[in-house]
Design a protein around this nucleic acid. Sequence first.
RNA 1: GGAGAAAUGGCAGAGUGGUCGAAUGCGGCGGUCUUGAAAACCGUUAUGGGUCACACCAUCGGGGGUUCGAAUCCCUCUUUCUCCGCCA
Length: 423
Amino acid sequence: MLLIPFIKENKEKVIKLLNVKNFKNTEILDNIISFDEARKSTQKKLDETLAKSKNIAKEIGGLFKSGKIEEANAKKAETGTLKELAKTLTEELALLKNKTTDLLLKVPNIPHESVPAGNSENDNETIKTVGEIPKLYDGAKPHWELTDKYDIIDFELGNKITGAGFPVYKGQGARLQRALINFFLDEATSVGFREVQPPLMVNSDSGYGTGQLPDKDGQMYHVGVDDLYLIPTAEVPITNIYRDTIVDAKDFPIRNTAYSQCFRREAGSYGKDVRGLNRLHQFDKVEIVVIEHPDKSYARLEEMSDYVQSLLKKLELPYRVLRLCGGDTSFTAALTYDMEVYSAAQERWLEVSSVSNFESYQANRLKLRFKDENGKTKLAHTLNGSALALPRIVAALLENNQTPDGIRIPKALVPYTGFEYIK
RNA sequence: GGAGAAAUGGCAGAGUGGUCGAAUGCGGCGGUCUUGAAAACCGUUAUGGGUCACACCAUCGGGGGUUCGAAUCCCUCUUUCUCCGCCA
């Protein structure tokens, strides 16, 4: 959520920047401001009423102590109207607060100044492209044929057991998954991330904390009997470790990494883009999450981007880095870099990582704060990124490294797979 | 699943109806002393709303209630602990 005082003081700027994200409903900002004004004046009235009742209660206490029972009982009568007034004001206040929060939840994060305007992926800005696009031999296949040929990922079997988008990894395919997970975790911990294993289900407070709720309600699997959500990314439980906390500024940057399975309903997706490993309901990902001082969050974002790129280099995959345009930047992010690897057989780029700075947008919902050098409590900045998501990495590895003799495993991974070729 | 007990500040732990936002100890921070440190001593040390700053208001697991007045009494939910059962 944006901070109301910030909206008030920078209204024109906020409107302008939200426009970059194609958010046009700017009268909502005026409503937020006026609801907040009403909230303040109601709060003031309530405080005054409560102060009066409190004083009378104290007086009555004193009278009872000194034995003036009759006077005390007479005083009691005075409190009736105050009580009623307080009740009405409390209800009004709660209503105003709810209305304000509801509206605030509908306002996306404002984008960073560097975010280009635009509506779709075509407007994203390519920052750099690294690596050679491989030339495949005649007869090279897309990954969904390779997985059959080598019997390593079984989509049909997943259909039978669960449904579309829940593949079964088998043999060398399963081993490759485990190798990638261990490789990514080892790399992350070696550059200073602490490894954690969070729950795969979260409550709705956590969902609101990181912004999946209410924005992406329909995209998460909801376990109704216990009112829990299957996580769409480990970002949710990891970041919520710090919900309702005041961290020590000396601990910045706070870096955590976790492997988790991720669950996404992907309602509304269809077509060739979802073929094979391109889009799954359950997939594996290693996530990195950083909590940082506001002054340093953008430097940290660059560092995280560099780190993700280092993984892609070690995996010998050609990739490009995009700065997402306003329309493609998520609801909660201020600036997002996407890393895409080139899939030679599909002849297209596949998104394998998103690295984002959320500034204080998540922190405000999370109540994630720190004390600055003057002892003032301030909101921290949160950042996260995939490092990396497995399915499309696997797709690209299979397609780009296919040879007539099998699929070559990149050198960096061989210690983890225990084999050099999938045959 | 059954029975019982409990939930208080960073931690430990008092407080069972009135000036309690809350004793005390530990820890943290600042100071005195010291060449420096330790010890000792003094001070300080929750969060949110509100204010230029005060005042003031809210918060003792969450929600509701009783009362002029609730950390304290009642209801409810959640969590934790102990015992029994069950499972590994």
